[in-house]
Design a protein around this nucleic acid. Structure first.
Lengths: 200, 200
DNA sequence: TTTATCATGTAAGGAGTTACATGATTCG
DNA sequence: CGAATCATGTAACTCCTTACATGATAAA
């Protein structure tokens, strides 16, 4: 139920319409908590229904201005300080890594190289944003900067890991004979496979 | 649709029942792609229906043994090499960071300190697992190791960031007067807020 | 006047979670 | 015999995505 809290958090910084909030999701929260138009409008309606926000209808073109209510602020603070964050990460990127043995080493290396490149582009984008933010003496709060720094560190880590990982694969760099049907092909009858690593 | 590919990936390593696969999800893929019992059984049925896997019914107690079909293997390889990974990360942890200005600096620091501790425990757990894996001369494929290493690097990064971030907050370490209703309280009428950082 | 932007909603479906429900077999 | 484990499924609900649908106002 974190979309709810994202909306409360934004409304705690000042009143806004669904449309306004949507913009913030696109520009600013896109990489932390993406949300679609459908979702935002629906959740705002629920929030108003639960008296966590107040609505002032009647702006220019059907515009509704939402502002946080006492109960909403209380809920936000409760969530921030007393609710244990869910850490159920899903990573399509890592899921693929587990099964990369099903491809040629060359393809596995290619996959990791592309990941390294994507991470590097991301890092550069954030580094540029950081420059802008620092130069402009900031609209951006301390906390926004912390998130930005997380992104920088994450993308640097990701790039370094992907480069290292690419180097770990096989010895052969040129084309090698394909191994017949997988990496180790554990098809023992005694149930499937032993333990595997579990990161994050 | 990655649960589908996770199942195909596991079945590519050898036949298994839904129950077997569930175990793998609990032990091994839990941190990369968690899945529940409901989900696994339902998806296996769909997979069989689409002829991506074959079923051999009739084990001891209603046990059904699934094995990957040609089409399934083709789909798996296609996904691994030709489908661009979705990078839509959601992070409850970072979402909170954005709104930490709604609490006392002390509480914000507390939050980040707890995150650092959680990350450190995670790191230790993975480091221990790495030792085991290295000592046992490994059932764990090269690729499992790559994922494990990712987890180690990620949790180290997370811990370092959280410690650094805690230090960035306020100057005051003792109790400070609460600021009335938020950090900067951008309640300007000219639409909501400027740009904010967007990490990963 | 046409186009872009502002502004809000609904509907259908996929994916995930939690809870319920049932029964067979093995081990102590 | 009773408990643990093996083994499979269904139902209800929440959350998210994609697509459809509509209309007002501001700027060129």
């Amino acid at each position: 139920m974190s979309l709810r809290h994202a909306l409360l958090g934004l409304l705690a910084q000042g009143p806004a319409s669904g449309y306004d909030l949507l913009k913030v999701f696109e520009i600013s929260l896109a990489n932390v908590w993406p949300a679609t138009q459908s979702q935002v409008y629906a959740e705002l309606a629920r929030l108003a229904d639960a008296d966590l926000v107040k609505v002032a209808a009647g702006g220019p073109r059907g515009r509704k201005e939402y502002s946080i209510a006492e109960r909403g602020l209380a809920e936000l603070r409760h969530w921030l300080t007393e609710v244990e964050p869910a850490r159920t990460g899903r990573s399509e990127m890592l899921l693929r890594v587990f099964f990369l043995g099903q491809t040629h080493p060359d393809q596995a290396r290619g996959y990791l190289r592309r990941e390294a490149e994507v991470a590097e582009r991301q890092r550069e984008r954030l580094a540029a944003l950081k420059q802008v933010v620092e130069r402009e003496e900031s609209d951006l709060s301390v906390y926004g900067r912390l998130a930005l720094e997380w992104g920088l560190r994450f993308s640097a880590m990701q790039r370094e890991w992907a480069e290292w990982a690419g180097g770990q694969i096989g010895g052969g760099v040129g084309p090698e004979p394909a191994d017949p049907s997988g990496p180790v092909a554990l098809s023992d009858p005694a149930g499937p496979q032993g333990d595997r690593g579990h990161p994050s």
